[in-house]
Design a binder for these strands. Structure first.
Lengths: 198, 198
DNA sequence: CCGGATTTATAGCCATTGCTAAAATACCCC
DNA sequence: GGGGTATTTTAGCAATGGCTATAAATCCGG
């Protein structure tokens, strides 16, 4: 009743299940036994054999997150205008963080904001991913200055930080129980700060 | 070398030490042994005797937080104008979340955003405290409508959610390493959304 | 139908988790 | 100085943490 060749086991589906658990419980609140149970893996050794240790699994899960539930982030940058990109990003966040098919909030924010010394690596990985998102937004806004969509005196770095702050605040609000409609309204208010050509 | 009457042990100072640990490591990332070490208590039983269990200690720590490092929040509401109150609140957050004498961020946000089922009580307590802060802000903004500082068609509840979102986003930004100056700039941008008397 | 490769499962590592009963100690008041 | 009280200590509970060595079971290629 044991063993055999690789059963072409669907590791993507398993990662999706692991994502749900990490998303809901955070890195430190998730035990290996929680993961094996959720992933349909019977024993811890099988999990370690397939995905490495907890940190490595978490990293793979974050990749899967970016390609799945958070794909809207990358897609937002494809909008023709920078303003459209920011709107797609933030309204997408309002939807994604309240999707009834997933835990509330954003794993990148709530996965490991504060944690014990033993989880610093996970925390730093999340910090880096958040910084990467902000940097991508800044790049898009810089381009908008070049194309004159934004005035020459606009501050792309400052605006990127502001809208990233909105994004992260939305994640906290969602984790606290805010409704989807309330979050969309927050986005509308936030967009008020968009620079007008004086 | 053991025992004795109550040594009028300074429990406030001990709570301040516990606050530092919970603040930096979160509820679930903090072990009782971390707390006893930081608080200058030799044994776990002494801690339980003095402060109850972990949840109760956490709650006491949050009270101490509200009266100490986060006192600026209550004080912000004393500003003569609602706009002044919001500015005091958010600029105060920019300072407090980057105070070199304390861990970065806000314990109310990063204490237990996502956690295991065993820490739900702590999570719910933080959620409630965040909601209470938002409710206080809403009340202040409703008063501003009454006094005509805000236009009659302003939405106090929506504005309170927006500025609370900024507040919480600032906490995440601070935890991620943003500088104090960057946070103050975010606040300035956020205040752009303040309703103007059309 | 067997040998070799591979993945399972069993069992257990060592450390720590939050928490507590019982015993030992030190203090204050009389 | 003795009695009573309060506290600290020692020791340990049952459970779990992440992780792994060993061994059993299964499949494939031949």
């Amino acid at each position: 009743m044991a063993g055999g060749r690789p059963r072409t086991f669907d590791s993507e589906a398993a990662l999706d299940r692991a994502l749900e658990v990490f998303w809901r419980q955070g890195y430190e609140g998730t035990a290996i036994s929680d993961l094996t149970k959720a992933m349909g893996i019977n024993n811890a050794p099988s999990l370690y054999n397939a995905f490495g240790n907890k940190e490595q699994l978490f990293s793979k899960v974050l990749d899967r997150y970016a390609d799945g539930p958070a794909r809207y982030i990358r897609e937002a940058f494809d909008q023709p205008t920078a303003r459209g990109a920011v709107e797609a990003l933030l309204h997408g966040a309002a939807d994604a963080t309240t999707d009834p098919d997933h835990p509330r909030g954003c794993i990148t924010v709530q996965g490991a904001l504060a944690c014990s010394p033993g989880a610093q690596t996970a925390r730093e990985e999340l910090t880096a991913r958040r910084a990467a998102g902000e940097a991508g937004l800044r790049a898009r806004l810089e381009r908008a200055v070049d194309t004159k969509e934004l005035p020459a005196d606009a501050d792309p770095a400052g605006l990127a930080r502001y809208f990233t702050t909105i994004y992260q605040g939305i994640a906290v609000q969602a984790a606290g129980g805010a409704t989807r409609e309330q979050l969309h309204q927050i986005v509308d208010t936030a967009m008020t700060a968009w620079p007008s050509r004086a």
